[in-house]
Simulated scan of single mutants.
Amino acid sequence: MEKTQKLKLIWDFKGPAANKTAQHHEIHLKEYITLEKLSLSITGFQDINDMHSIAYMVVMSSEMKAVRDALKPHRGQLYQE
């Protein structure tokens, strides 16, 4: 994997409060980025359907292991800009 690749780390939230939980989780992701001085500050949340939402952050592949171990995302994928 290239050190310059961008990866999207994803947290899944399910249930009637999924949207609010994903929105709230994004706040903590932004705080973590600032605290750890990560090179990217791309975050967001998205509704998959009315019972499933995600929060995500994009990291450089070189930073992925440290972030993964600290924040334990549910899954990840290559980031498409």
Rank of each mutant, 00 (worst) to 15 (best):
M1T: 08
M1I: 06
E2Q: 08
E2N: 10
E2W: 01
T4M: 08
T4Q: 11
T4R: 13
K6W: 10
L7V: 08
L7Y: 05
L7E: 03
K8T: 03
K8M: 08
L9Q: 01
L9Y: 01
K14L: 11
K14Y: 12
G15T: 04
G15K: 03
G15P: 04
G15V: 02
A17R: 15
A18L: 06
A18I: 07
A18S: 14
A18D: 08
N19P: 15
K20M: 12
K20G: 15
A22V: 07
A22M: 12
A22K: 04
Q23G: 11
Q23T: 09
Q23F: 12
H24I: 00
H25T: 08
H25Y: 14
I27L: 12
I27R: 10
I27V: 15
I27A: 10
H28E: 13
L29T: 06
L29M: 12
I33W: 04
I33G: 04
T34Q: 06
T34I: 07
T34K: 10
T34D: 04
T34A: 07
L35Q: 10
L35D: 11
E36D: 07
E36S: 09
K37C: 06
K37R: 07
K37Q: 13
L40E: 04
S41F: 10
I42K: 02
T43W: 06
T43L: 06
G44T: 02
D47K: 15
D47H: 13
I48C: 10
I48S: 09
N49R: 05
N49V: 06
N49F: 04
D50A: 07
D50F: 04
M51P: 09
H52C: 02
H52E: 04
I54R: 00
I54N: 00
Y56C: 10
V58N: 01
V58E: 01
V58F: 01
V58H: 00
V58S: 00
V59G: 01
V59N: 00
V59P: 00
V59Y: 01
M60Q: 12
S61D: 10
S62Q: 11
S62R: 11
S62L: 15
E63C: 02
M64Y: 03
K65Q: 13
V67S: 02
R68Y: 15
R68G: 06
D69E: 11
D69R: 03
L71T: 07
L71R: 11
K72V: 05
P73T: 13
H74Y: 10
H74G: 15
R75Q: 14
R75P: 05
Q77M: 11
Q77R: 03
Q77V: 11
L78A: 14
L78I: 14
Y79G: 03
